[in-house]
């Protein structure tokens, strides 16, 4: 049964595919996602740093008004190509809660929270002091964006599709309008009714690098940025992966040759009597 020699490898593959089916579970009643080509896809894919930086600009000017990104530190931006001084300058635009002062106080005499200028080591400041305050506008707190690209089925495709699939009030069918009520209608969001109003449109942000400021461009850039925030080590992970794979392939080939060679010795010997037990 030569077949039983091949089956282990086939089974291996099959089990993998079977496992992946869990992840392939339908993502709910949202519409089909608009699949994009992403720079970070595939074996050799790495982040498009310029796009991610443009995405950061959108995050800074638009998203961060309501959304926090609690795992994003200013110093992380160096990985996108900013210099230390540039990162310092970005951080200096923000204020964060100060550490206790010399008197051990964190509030001033009027009861206001003491603040200080943000440093590179600080986390990007959240727009609201707590969940309750964040939920005060829409009833639900806007989700933290630092892991959004990993916690949503479809990842960057989902974010891109969501941002570009709002339907204007005047284009809604009667049924859709009824469904949306005071909120907004989105073709991709599960359940279609979303509290967040369309955050981006053409020319939401003026790009410094002269890229055309269309809605699609904005959505794509911010999705690239959010993927980077969610998985900042993707570039180095893949780079290490190539080295590891190359090593493993060479190792496996050598091990195979060694194994064949050792076994070839066995085939020469059978006439000489007992099989070597040592």
């Amino acid at each position: 049964m030569r077949l039983m020699k091949i089956i282990p490898a086939a089974l291996l593959g099959l089990t993998l595919v079977g496992g992946a089916s869990t992840a392939a579970l339908a993502s709910g009643d949202g519409a089909e996602l608009k699949h994009q080509h992403w720079h970070f896809q595939g074996f050799f894919g790495q982040y498009d740093k310029a796009a991610a930086l443009r995405g950061f600009q959108i995050f800074e000017e638009v998203c961060s008004a309501c959304h926090a990104a609690k795992y994003l530190r200013f110093r992380d931006l160096e990985a996108l190509g900013l210099s230390k001084d540039q990162v310092k300058a970005v951080a200096a635009k923000y204020e964060v809660d100060a550490e206790p002062n010399d008197d051990g106080m964190t509030y001033d005499d009027d009861g206001e929270r003491l603040k200080r200028t943000a440093l590179q080591s600080d986390v990007f400041p959240a727009p609201f002091p707590n969940e309750k305050a964040a939920a005060s506008i829409h009833g639900v707190a806007p989700p933290d964006l630092s892991l959004l690209a990993k916690s949503r089925e479809g990842g960057a495709d989902y974010i891109y599709s969501l941002l570009t699939s709002y339907v204007d009030a005047e284009h809604l069918t009667e049924e859709q309008a009824k469904k949306a009520g005071d909120l907004n209608y989105n073709a991709v969001f599960p359940g279609n009714v979303i509290a967040m109003a369309a955050p981006l449109s053409d020319e939401s942000v003026e790009y410094v690098d002269g890229t055309e400021p269309t809605l699609e461009q904005h959505a794509k850039d911010v999705a690239e940025f959010l993927m980077w925030v969610a998985e900042p080590n993707l570039d180095s992970r893949k780079r290490m992966g190539w080295a590891v794979l190359l090593f493993m392939i060479v190792f496996t080939i050598l091990a195979y040759l060694a194994y064949r060679r050792v076994h070839a010795r066995v085939h020469e010997e059978p006439a000489n009597g007992p099989w070597p037990l040592h």
Binding site: L16, A23, K238, G241, L245, I249, T252
Partner: peptide, 25 residues
């Protein structure tokens, strides 16, 4: 040794290139 090499090549393929493939988003 040879078969371990084969198995771990596949394992590392997932670890380095699709680490979240088998998990839930």
């Amino acid at each position: 040794l040879f078969f371990i090499g084969l198995f771990f090549t596949i394992y590392f393929l997932v670890v380095f290139f699709a680490p979240n493939m088998l998990g839930e988003a």
